[in-house]
Amino acid sequence: MDITAQKPAAPPSPGPAAPEDKGAARGATRPGDRIFLGFSRGSGIFVLVLMAAIAAFLTYRASLAISKDEANFFTSFEWNPTGVPPEFGIAVLAFGTVVSSVIAMVIAVPISVGIALFITHYAPRRLGGTVGYVIDLLAAVPSIVYGLWGAIVLVPHMDGLYGWLDDYLGWTGVFAWEGGPARSLLTVGILLALMILPIITNVSREVFRQVPRMHEEAALALGATRWEVIRMSVLPFGRSGVISASMLGLGRALGETMAVAMVLSPSFDISASLLDAGGGTFAQNIASKFNEATVMGQDALIASGMVLFVITLLVNGAARLIIARRKEYSGANA
């Protein structure tokens, strides 16, 4: 009797909550059990308290700063929190963060899907395995190394591409280039794309691997070419997985600090051209302004970090939502 009450539930299914809870409480009458349950439940509660504390402290410091801000926090182009009326706003940072992340996504998502397909469907088996392994390891390379490589190796190599873009697309204004080092939002976007490539590739590869063999063989039996197999069975099956992988990559690109801080030469204005040095992102601005900041300056930086926090929460939440929805009808045909 006692034993059945203690039986652990199958983990994935939440099951009926109330009666089981009672059983667990009754099972924990032995002192050892009670202590152990206390410790593990305590850790769970600790995580909750930690999250609440993060939100509370950030909001508190941010509100201190924003209440003193004389300019509009969301639309001002100034960043002068120590000025005599303190004026600062996040317009430039929001612009830079969004633009660099969008560039990164535009480059990284198609290429990652390509590599994932390469590994799962095109490459000879051994090469695919090796590439997958190397990409796995690359996902672990720290961002500071990407930053060092970007600033010293990538930036000089961008000149050729920049010149070409300026020659042929300069008339649009978006790709106009005045010369000078290529420490612009476009380079940052390309570097971010490289950084999130391994993550998106890894997740997409796992999703493509799970495509039911039957679907592919059915398409092949109908005489489909390899591309038609991929278009008809692999991509539809993997779509939501790829979307959520991209969102996870986007979350990482939005919050990336050191690589951006090392490559970008920041300035507090918005330039129409992606190729001209200048602009900034939330994380980069915090890292580079932090050292000389007074308490008020730090509070202003915390306020901008708070905005970044909210944005990444929304992006990650959307990714989780897509993953959760996918779970509901993916197992049906395994």
């Binding site: 509660i45 909750l48 890292a287 926090f309 929460l313 990650n316």
Partner: peptide, 24 residues
Amino acid sequence: YGRGKLAKAVTFFVDVMTGIPSIV
């Protein structure tokens, strides 16, 4: 052990924590 609201909340917030940018 986890069932009920507390476990769900912990799961959710662990997910949220995974996405916190390091600078935050």
